[in-house]
Computed example of a mutant assay.
Amino acid sequence: MTTLYLFGSAAPPVLEIAGVIEEAQARGWDVCLGLTPSAARWLEADLPALEELTGRPVRWEYKRPGEPDVWPPADVILFAPATFNTINHWALGLTDRFVVGVVAEAIGKEIPTVAMPCVNAAYAQHPQFHWSVDALRSMGLTILYGEDGFVPNQPGEKRPYPWHLALAAVEAAVSPRP
């Protein structure tokens, strides 16, 4: 069974994470859910149900030295939604958040990693965001941003998040290559 680390930041699509977990499980993946601290606060009332759904603790903090790891090793990681802040922290190597630390380390461990941002068009105008997306892509990561992924919406605009693209990219990342 493929172990998927599913990570999410505090953006509206994280509120749909239970359905994404169910879809990933239907594809035969063992899902471990990690969140930024803000996303964990957004989902606070749902955390027990999410732990029951995955059969594992939901994590948003680093474990203490000497504590055993409660998750199996990842075969693939999906970070979605990934906010402006998360993308920039990750690209700059700022690992004060557990999930950002894991994906930063995944580069060196060569764990296939897919990310799909969720930023509005105002944030997307900041040059650091584009530099960060380019930096992450240059590290061999799949960043679903632009025409083949997430296209920024106008501030306040609501539209469906393309979870199907993220899950398809994860599937492609773990599929045997010919």
Rank of each mutant, 00 (worst) to 15 (best):
F79A: 07
A40F: 06
P57F: 14
A80G: 06
F84N: 02
F7V: 09
A169E: 02
A169W: 01
E67Y: 03
P162N: 11
E67H: 07
A24F: 02
A124S: 07
T142Q: 03
V151K: 10
L165G: 01
N85A: 13
T54A: 06
D46N: 14
K63H: 14
A91N: 05
D148W: 00
G19V: 09
M116K: 04
G149V: 01
P162S: 11
E16W: 06
A10R: 09
I143W: 02
W163K: 03
L141H: 06
A26K: 12
P57W: 13
L43D: 05
N153L: 15
A172M: 00
P162K: 10
L6F: 03
Q125L: 12
G55F: 03
L15H: 12
W131H: 14
P155L: 07
L141C: 01
Q25T: 05
W29G: 04
P68F: 11
V70Q: 14
W71T: 13
W163Q: 05
A91T: 07
I21V: 15
P12L: 00
E16H: 13
R56W: 05
A169P: 01
L92D: 08
P57T: 15
P152A: 11
L43T: 03
A39E: 12
P73L: 14
C118N: 10
R56A: 03
R41L: 11
I87E: 00
P72E: 12
P57D: 13
S138F: 12
L50R: 11
T2R: 15
A24Q: 02
E16P: 02
S175L: 09
G93M: 10
P176Q: 13
P12E: 07
V170Q: 04
R27E: 00
R41V: 04
M139K: 15
N153D: 09
I21Q: 08
V133R: 01
V170D: 00
W131D: 13
P160T: 13
T36A: 11
T95A: 13
F150Y: 14
L6A: 02
P176R: 14
I111C: 04
